[in-house]
């Protein structure tokens, strides 16, 4: 079985709907991470159906707000919090519990 990874682009407006459909079809959320670009971020949402992995790439500016998908995939909260704490990505809708902090860092060290 080839270890191939498909990539596709996605916009912030359709992310939540796409994830809802993916979850309904039984896809797994493998991970989310951010890459720094010259004027913003590239967010990569990796989802898998069986062995098939798709990297959904979303290019956003620094000010763009991205909706949290933790209501669909609860595990997304950790990834989103990581992006928010380390990179300063503006994720809206992460459950705001000050006790659930990941890295206890000042500022955004990877911004």
């Amino acid at each position: 079985m080839p270890n191939k990874v498909e990539t596709a682009s996605i916009g912030p407006a359709v992310l939540k709907q796409y994830m809802k459909e993916a979850a309904a079809e039984g896809c797994r959320l493998v991970q989310i991470h951010a890459n720094r670009t010259s004027d913003g971020y590239q967010l990569i949402y990796s989802i898998a159906s069986g062995y098939h992995l798709i990297n959904l790439e979303m290019v956003i500016s620094e000010d763009t707000e991205v909706e949290s998908i933790s209501g669909i995939y609860p595990a997304a909260q950790l990834y989103e919090q990581e992006m928010a704490e380390l990179f300063g990505v503006r994720i809206i809708g992460i459950p705001e519990d000050p006790r659930v902090k990941l890295y206890h860092v000042q500022g955004h060290p990877m911004k």
Binding site: R99, V100, K101, L102, Y103, H104, V105, P109, M110
Partner: peptide, 14 residues
């Protein structure tokens, strides 16, 4: 259960 970790985060990705 409310988790908290990150006490020894080493920034290895960076």
């Amino acid at each position: 259960a409310i988790p908290s970790f990150g006490f020894i985060h080493r920034g290895m990705e960076d």
